[in-house]
Amino acid sequence: MAQSYLWRSGQVRGYAVVIFTARHVAEPTEMSEREAAAFWRDARAVGHAIEEHYQPVLKMNYLLLGNAIPHAHWHLVPRHEATKDPAPGGPVPFALLDHGRQDEALLQRDAAALRRLLRGAA
């Protein structure tokens, strides 16, 4: 129902996107109940894996926006304590999510760890 990607860009380690892939829809109201439930289950599973791997996470932000790309997709943004969070107590500016580049070796290790966690949850 969905594909998940760990974001290479930006300054927030663990930022991921979960994209609805069954067909094109811009809104969750365009999904059947089964599709919507499966889409949320996929986003929840990825969020749980992110929480497990990137501890200590104080909060996960789940954003279903679609302002720039009108296709149903979740943005999952792990939030950390104030000393490690790029925008403590407020929304993370998209510039911090898009500008810069994650360390490729670390990103690959993180992706492998998240895959193992997701397989273990299935």
Rank of each mutant, 00 (worst) to 15 (best):
L114S: 09
N67A: 06
D42Q: 06
A37R: 12
A121S: 15
A82H: 08
D98Q: 09
R44H: 13
Q55F: 04
G10V: 00
F20T: 08
R41I: 00
T21L: 11
F20A: 07
A121V: 01
V25T: 07
A112I: 11
A68L: 09
I50R: 02
L97D: 14
L58P: 01
A122V: 01
A37K: 05
I50V: 13
Y15R: 08
E33H: 09
L64M: 13
F94E: 09
I69A: 11
G10M: 04
Y5N: 01
R13H: 06
W40Y: 11
G100D: 10
L76F: 01
Y5T: 09
V25F: 05
F20S: 03
P88I: 07
L118C: 05
G100R: 07
P88N: 07
L63T: 00
A121M: 15
R41Q: 02
L118Q: 12
R8A: 09
A113H: 09
L63P: 00
H71G: 05
G14L: 00
R101N: 07
V46G: 05
G66P: 12
T29N: 03
A72Y: 01
G100Q: 15
E104Q: 11
G66S: 10
Y54T: 02
A87E: 10
E81K: 15
K59H: 08
A26W: 08
W74M: 04
I50G: 02
W74Y: 05
W7N: 12
R101F: 01
E33P: 03
G90Q: 07
E104F: 05
R115T: 10
L76G: 06
G89V: 13
